[in-house]
Structure formats: C-alpha cells, structure tokens
C-alpha cells in the first residue's frame, strides 16, 4: 500500500515488512485424460479422504487411466515431503488432491 504523504508533519510507519515472491507459471493443461497416469495425494483428513475416494470413483467410470496411484502426506498441516513430491512427479502425469477439514 503506497503511503501518500506531504513532506512535513508526523512520521508514520508501515509495519508489514517486504514480501519477496517468486512467480511460478502454471503447468500446461492436458487435452485428454485417457491413457494418463493419475496420482492422488491425500492430506489424511477425514473429509478430504472422502472427497478423493468419491472423485476417484467418478473419474474412473469416465476415463481410462493408464495407472492410478494413491499417496498420503505425513501431516495435513505441513508441506508434503520433497521426496514424496519427487516420487509423485516421476511416476505420474497428472495429480488430484483435495482439501477437506
């Protein structure tokens, strides 16, 4: 938020600190899901799991995946382990995940 100010008067401060960000471009959308390898990443929460299970069933009725693999994060509140993310990237073409509290 720019702080418009004249040159005399009270000194005021912005208490927020600078944010340095790195823009990461989105991946290219795939045109056809058939024949792709699907990875499913669960955060291990009760409702998130329910959503993923039901979504998987619907998708598998409609799409002929080459493979479907299921993964779990160590904790729903933490980033997935980098090793797990590497495994998912290596073994899958697309990934499905869900947030459910």
């Amino acid at each position: 938020m720019p702080l418009d100010a004249p040159k005399t008067g009270h000194v005021v401060y912005d208490p927020r600190g600078i944010v340095e960000t790195t823009a990461i471009p989105l991946g290219k959308r795939v045109a056809d899901l058939n024949g792709l390898r699907l990875g499913i990443l669960s955060n291990k929460k009760w409702n998130g799991n329910n959503l993923l299970r039901k979504t998987r069933a619907i998708l598998e009725d409609e799409i002929d995946f080459a493979d479907v693999k299921f993964y779990e994060k160590e904790s729903f509140s933490k980033n997935a382990d980098p090793g797990l993310l590497g495994e998912i990237i290596a073994d899958n073409d697309i990934v499905l995940t869900a947030i459910g509290d």
């Binding site: 938020m1 720019p2 702080l3 100010a5 004249p6 040159k7 005399t8 008067g9 009270h10 000194v11 005021v12 401060y13 912005d14 927020r16 600078i18 944010v19 340095e20 960000t21």
Partner: peptide, 10 residues
C-alpha cells in the same frame, strides 16, 4: 518484491 516505504510523513 511487494514493497512500500517503511517510513513516510503525514
């Protein structure tokens, strides 16, 4: 970097 002057005058 999202930034604004830390110090200003009103």
């Amino acid at each position: 970097a999202e930034s604004s002057p830390v110090e200003s005058v009103v």
